[in-house]
């Protein structure tokens, strides 16, 4: 048994595959598209069009770096409002051209900076959720590493929400939780155990639908095997969702979040 705290460490590990690793491994012909047509291009979110077994799809992912320099460029995977607005633009584009949407979630949270506030971080996150609830194409969301706070949920409202076995999904980091509720950030380890943040916890709470198995020791040990599991899962989910009418799909999507807690 891997403890919740050990999973936090695994989920944050530098060597752990990031969104672009999965995108390049699972899809072909990926063309990255940039910018929110409003302010700029946020590199902490990548997105574009790719083929999944020949079928065009829209893929979006929160992107952390593996090395210091890339991490700086990617703002450690903490999006600004323009990142969420880029994601929304690409999702609306997917709807127009009837492409399924796949999102990869991996963020310590939305960036808490001055510019983010000036440009409406709260509005950007809220708008994405409202729009995602009504997009008329299948949406598959996968937490691949760290899914933290509204920053994760902003690309996390879908028909299927899955987590990799060692990913974590939480209201905020265990460190933040410990400093608020235990008044001691060093109690993060205890916090992690009590917060119910593992894939199994979230499946039990009906917050996620499925858990995707990782290779022994974690995803970093065998990218091609886990990417293969993910690909199968995504294809199967899209096939299932394609059997439903748009109305049924949207109703199910609504009910899924309506009945949580």
């Amino acid at each position: 048994m891997i403890s919740a705290w050990e999973k936090v460490s695994l989920a944050r590990m530098a060597e752990r595959p990031k969104s672009l690793d999965y995108i390049n491994e699972i899809f072909t012909d990926f063309i990255e598209l940039h910018g929110d047509r409003n302010f700029g291009d946020d590199k902490s979110i990548v997105g574009g069009i790719a083929k999944l077994d020949g079928m065009p799809v829209t893929v979006i992912g929160e992107q952390k770096g593996k090395k210091a320099k890339e991490n700086m460029e990617r703002n450690f995977g903490m999006p600004n409002p323009e990142g969420y607005r880029k994601a929304l633009r690409l999702m609306k584009q997917a709807e127009k051209f009837k492409r399924p949407i796949i999102t990869f979630i991996d963020t310590p949270g939305a960036y808490p900076g001055m510019g983010a506030e000036e440009r409406g971080q709260g509005e950007a996150i809220a708008r994405n959720m409202l729009e995602m609830a009504n997009l008329k194409v299948p949406i598959i969301c996968i937490v691949i590493g760290e899914g933290s706070s509204g920053g994760a949920l902003a690309i996390g409202l879908g028909d299927k929400v899955a987590m990799l076995e060692n990913a974590v999904y939480s209201i905020l980091s265990p460190e933040g939780f410990a400093s608020i509720l235990y008044k001691d950030a060093s109690k993060a380890k205890d916090a992690a155990e009590n917060m119910k943040i593992t894939a199994q916890d979230l499946k039990d709470l009906n917050v996620i639908d499925d858990i995707i198995e990782e290779p022994e020791g974690g995803a970093q040990n065998d990218l091609s095997s886990i990417a293969n599991n993910l690909k199968k899962y995504i294809i199967k989910s899209i096939e299932e969702l394609n059997k439903l009418s748009v109305e049924e799909m949207l109703q199910n999507r609504y009910e899924k979040f309506r009945k949580i807690g």
């Binding site: 959720m129 729009e131 409202l157 609504y254 949580i260």
Partner: peptide, 24 residues
């Protein structure tokens, strides 16, 4: 968010936003 309710409190954001999507 109500920290003591963890991920369930986070999910209220999705729930209320989805309800407002219908309202809209």
């Amino acid at each position: 968010a109500r920290m003591q309710e963890g991920i369930i409190s986070l999910m209220q954001m999705a729930k209320t936003s989805a309800a407002l999507a219908k309202h809209n």
